[in-house]
Nucleic acid binder design. Structure first.
Lengths: 116, 116
DNA sequence: CATATATATCGAAGATTGTCAATATAGGGG
DNA sequence: CCCCTATATTGACAATCTTCGATATATATG
């Protein structure tokens, strides 16, 4: 189907939603979704999530840092944003901090990748 | 499953990907995905996409503008970003510009909504 | 042609974000 | 107790983003 011509019908005639159709987005829902999307909308964070999602065991920050060109505070900053979005979680063991992907983080990554 | 404890196994032991598992993200792929996610990561644009996805017919800019609290240049700016991301397309008829959601835009909206 | 209207573009102000150097915190080893 | 190392936090700066007023463009109408 050619999306460069106006569609005869896209979704939801008369406000009634056909199967699989997104309903109208309430402003507060849009805000919440936008926040989750912002946490994903950075190449470094996407790669971090991908890296963590491939691990059998949680990774410590120094191993994560080694995979990127950015400096340690920057990595720490991105990990914090991912944590605040509940896409990763962490645990301190001695001097080290170990990170892993949450269920929500895995779903988010799969969702992001599906954007092609 | 409790995501607040380190997982025994998340995905991809030894770099081998289990069914449905995201592969490592190449930097250029991450960049491209991040750009698409940025286009989605705004409450106004999410609501615009949702509004357009519900229409049987393309909507003209003045009708879109009427649904939001922002001024016309702001709406025009957001529509441009959605267009550059190929999530919407438009056509001029006389003085009016009519917008509709592309296939990619519909997929993106569904994907965004699936973030919960 | 003059005017009115719909939309886009420009330019600027303010907010947010990504990055890093410097510093703080805290655990482990001598 | 002192030092070394791993990580987090702070503060600064540049870049990017959102928004809006002003203006440009283009079409229809009288």
């Amino acid at each position: 189907m050619n999306t460069n011509t106006p569609p005869v019908s896209v979704l939801a005639p008369n406000g009634c939603c056909p199967p699989g159709a997104p309903p109208t987005l309430a402003p507060d829902t849009a805000l919440r979704l936008a926040e989750a999307l912002k946490a994903l909308a950075d190449p470094t964070r996407l790669r971090m999530l991908s890296l963590l999602a491939q691990q059998t065991e949680p990774l410590c920050v120094c191993d994560i840092t080694a995979q990127f060109d950015q400096h340690q505070p920057t990595i720490s900053h991105h990990l914090r944003l991912l944590r605040e979005a509940r896409f990763v979680d962490c645990e301190k063991r001695g001097v080290w901090a170990y990170y892993w992907v949450t269920d929500a983080g895995q779903r988010a990554l799969i969702v992001a990748l599906s954007l092609g």
